[in-house]
Design a protein around this nucleic acid. Structure first.
Lengths: 126, 126, 126, 126
DNA sequence: GTGGTCTAGACCACG
DNA sequence: GTGGTCTAGACCACA
């Protein structure tokens, strides 16, 4: 379901958050779909339940999911959620651009890379 | 000399490292040029000397600069180091582009963000 | 009979309790009127019977209803219970007003919100 | 500095969050002011550091404060933060109105209570 | 069974 | 010293 990289330095809870956001963005999950329970996912990913809990709370405060005590957690079908997701993605990409610029890359180089990656995506869907 | 953003969340240490890499990449500094002393730069940037020291160590282990006891720190002539740094930056940015695309952002949106960030960079450096 | 909002975050149990208190307060039900059976209401509201059972127990311990083994549950004639409930509600709301004022909201803003919520109540009950 | 009620049932971390929001709203703290460290506040309030940490993260994600590793946490001077705070206060008050209505109180009763509380505030600043 | 909060104690990165 | 993440295990409210 979710692939974690325990060595990457990226916080596990962030990886979980991004994973579910991606699932929603890619259409693999829709509004109303139930997420695995905190405890179940903790077992599946070999992670502490608190870590999952934190991830779910981040997702909820971002409007991507909503949780009901005693019932479970569900993907939100609120359009605002998708907007929040896009905003988060923009923020991440903006940070990437900034750090690339800090390392001396130019605007045109960055655009060239984007074009390359987009080309690959279309061509052999790498 | 270097512009720091204390609120951006990017570690001061990394900002300093990136700043010197950028100076080299942009041709503002060449192999053999001397860097400011740890103490002087600490005063100039209002930063703890330990932070500068750590940045210089990171730069040295990356091969971008070299230090001589009792003399100071100097930009390295080693072109390979520069190339490695740039290649790493490209790889990071390429990954960022790909994950942005996965989250549903379009090529034109990405280019728009780049333009925005480039504009901001010039305008305000908080 | 009762309108439940499963996403509001307000416990189903409390919504049921409040619903019956409201029915009594609004005069839709009078002392001696029989409440639906636990099982029937559970089916009607698509809710776990345990949840209904708990709500009825809360209502009984608050003196709003009384239960007779083998017969069912009935609204109490005890006016004191109703008064206590209303006084508690007033106290809670008074506290909410005070904390809203402390956070800088004005009297007119609060009244505006009330008008909004009253409007919504009539329109959609999700 | 902050008064906690350990018996109220209101989560401690929420009380801390509201306390700092109130300090900002009341003008007791301004943008740039430093908050007590996680550990120090934990000792002062006799609470686990994780609880403070959680509260600070909630405040940060709400834009009320910002935190810098190794430096500390500071009140944000971002105007958007104040807006977010007001929105949160509105949401809370809206919930209070809704639950009051559920208990049978009428629109005019609620407005009457508001007027009463506002009157007290002005008169003897209770 | 579910989610939510809290404690206790550890480790890391940063300054 | 600072904030940030994670683990382990407990307790509560809700269904």
């Amino acid at each position: 379901m979710l692939q974690l990289n325990y060595k990457s330095g990226v916080p596990i809870c962030d990886q979980i958050v991004n994973g579910f956001i991606r699932m929603k963005a890619l259409g693999l999950s829709k509004g109303g779909d139930q997420l695995p329970s905190v405890r179940a996912l903790a077992v599946e990913l070999c992670v502490n339940p608190n870590t999952i809990q934190k991830a779910y709370q981040m997702l909820e405060s971002a409007g991507v999911i909503y949780s009901v005590k005693g019932k479970g957690s569900f993907f939100s079908d609120d359009a605002a959620a998708d907007i929040a997701v896009i905003k988060a993605a923009k923020k991440d990409f903006r940070a990437a651009v900034q750090s690339a610029l800090e390392l001396g890359m130019t605007e045109s180089e960055l655009k060239k890379i984007i074009a390359e990656v987009c080309g690959k995506e279309e061509a052999h869907n790498d």
